[in-house]
Design a protein around this nucleic acid. Sequence first.
DNA 1: CGGTGTGAAATAATTCACAGCT
DNA 2: AGCTGTGAATTATTTCACACCG
Lengths: 253, 253
Amino acid sequence: MTSAPQAGPEGTPALGEAAATGTGGAPAARAVPEATVARLAVYLRMLGELAEQGTDTVSSDELAAVCGVNSAKLRKDLSYVGSHGIRGVGYEVGPLLHHLESTLGLTHRQSVALVGIGNLGHALAGYGGFGGRGFPVTALFDVDPDLVGIKINGILVDHVRDIPHVCRERDVTIGMIATPAPAAQGACDLLVRAGVSCILNFAPVVLQVPEQVEVRKVDLAVELQILSFHVARRHLAEREGLDAVNGHAVVRS
Amino acid sequence: MTSAPQAGPEGTPALGEAAATGTGGAPAARAVPEATVARLAVYLRMLGELAEQGTDTVSSDELAAVCGVNSAKLRKDLSYVGSHGIRGVGYEVGPLLHHLESTLGLTHRQSVALVGIGNLGHALAGYGGFGGRGFPVTALFDVDPDLVGIKINGILVDHVRDIPHVCRERDVTIGMIATPAPAAQGACDLLVRAGVSCILNFAPVVLQVPEQVEVRKVDLAVELQILSFHVARRHLAEREGLDAVNGHAVVRS
DNA sequence: CGGTGTGAAATAATTCACAGCT
DNA sequence: AGCTGTGAATTATTTCACACCG
């Protein structure tokens, strides 16, 4: 009956301070805000594209523009991880890219397990490399006897009951749950038992986990409902007043 | 060359005030925080489950528990939409459920278009009803000649070039983009031209849209990288100090 | 009582604006 | 001259705590 922190759209409170002791501790990057972490991943991707194009320096303004954030935020985000831009010039693409990769823990390949090979799970299994930089899916699980034993993308589907065994063996660090709702908590428990401490949950349930486990939720229905809210609000605003969004008149295309 | 607001994990600034006029205007719910909207959708789902079980009242404590939030937050969230709980008792499941549905604009069925019938798109197309309450996918688009013309789940796949025509005809209000990255902006532009003002983007790009269009992003790679960061942090904390998360010693199961 | 609704306090995230480096 | 790094101000969100009501 632990309370579930769960981090979906919203962030977890923050990141714990390293230690209360005033003396010890590393000089390591401290307390990177959760919101910042999410954006670092975006910066990283764009830096990758710039690198491919052969660009070797960017200003915060330029990088911010392609990432869709404002430059002050970008600079502050980078400052949390102790960035090393060059004043008057900008950031060196290569080194910054490397630094962010390291900050995000992408230097060691993370092994991913996927539980639930239904509609969505199948797509996730075949996603191949997850947009380039590698999160190899190394284990697949389901309960359906028709699925257990087949191979998808070269990976054998094991029975859910083997999660603890197989995950430990393949050193899985991240678990993805794409089961139907009723099966999700069970899958989660098995992953936790296997020592997996980071979980990406696609099932529409709130998972109960011990506090050392980090859960992020991707909930398609919720995303659509949020958009639906905006559709409704727009209609409402359109109907009565004139100015709707941000005090500006709605423009017809 | 508009700056892109884009709302992924993080929220958009807020919701605009309805009107500056002190007098007129409806008694309508004003300025619901974005973070709250996301949670309303979760409350709604859980209320649905409670209703199915035949429960007809819940306290904020109980509902909060199953939704994985704390009860103060839940009460405040509901207060933004002018909730009508009964002091000393709790909330009536049925009426509250209905009220939230209406707030989220779920009373009018929203018609959804999906662009990009690849790996992920295929799964989304076949998702069927999106977790129950209806966001019927009524239009599918791709550029691949092998896909255009086939039916998935009873819906014909049209060519991307027909987006404006078909979307207007079928009164699409929400667009989902599941194309490869390079094609995403083009798909987006076509949807916008078709009058679609809410977009759910699965492609790993930052879409440029006019400001009246609401974009939400679901980025699998980013989600994994966020988790990866936590894996890395955990390792780091484990290696040196003892206390890692929230100042508590890491407990071995 | 028991539980909601909500001001006020605390915390987190964003933006401003400018000193300081190259 | 240009652009980073960052304190300080602002804004958003969460939590507290308690008056008030059924």
